[in-house]
Amino acid sequence: MFETLEWLPRIIGALVLVGLAIGVSRWQKAGIEQDMLVAVGRAFVQLIAIGYALDFIFSRQGPFWSLLVVGVMVSVAGYTAGQRGKYVPRSKIIATVSVTVGTALTLGLLIVLNVFPFEPRFTIPIAGMIVGNAMTATGLAMNRLRDDLKLQKAQIETALALGATQRQAANQQMRRALTTGMTPIVDKTKTVGLISLPGAMTGMILAGASPLEAVQLQIIVMYMLVGAVAFSGLTATFLTYRQFFTQAHQLMVSALSDEALI
């Protein structure tokens, strides 16, 4: 099996740099040699393991393995985003649903429009990008919405007292939460190619593709991420605000307390 690790000599070559870094750390008495060695070792083991796992999955036919891997990604992302928004009741369920909605809609559309074939080799790396960005947007939107509802309690109750529905009363806060969730990807999309060359494109160029091919893929990736983040952010916003109101359009002040709800 090890014949497939044909880059091993180059990896060992790259270790020279780690050696230099350890030297610098010793010389400067920074005391992080131990940490560095652990990190270097972990990176090697984790990545080689995932390499073999992906190698195995890419060689399988049918949707089972793709769906399984995407399912694991979504669950981990939902848990992580839910943790970030832990002051929202049912945060993990909301975050998982939001990431799932964004991922399913975007990935589904890309496959239906035949932008990518439904094969693990395409589905898994693309889903990875989508899930990662959807996770960030979901966590940010949930947190911002909860913070604003708490901070602007007086405004919300004033609106309710004037006959607003909970949706009308929280309208402004919901819009701001959605904007907060989407801002990172929108900013990245605005400056893509000017500040940094993104990962997908860099990878393609290193693997031998022409820059023009690489940028076309990158354009697809950026557009798809904007879509995914919008779907996830919107879902998160709509599911989150409802946690703080009763059916009779009352703000649940108890749900806004600072005790984590998990």
């Binding site: 007086a154 004033t158 402004q172 359009h249």
Partner: peptide, 20 residues
């Protein structure tokens, strides 16, 4: 209907929260 009730029964709070 709670929304109709709140239109019939108006309320002012300690500090006036005006909207943008």
């Amino acid at each position: 209907d709670v929304l109709a009730l709140r239109r019939q029964v108006g309320m002012l709070f300690q500090s006036a929260a005006l909207f943008e």
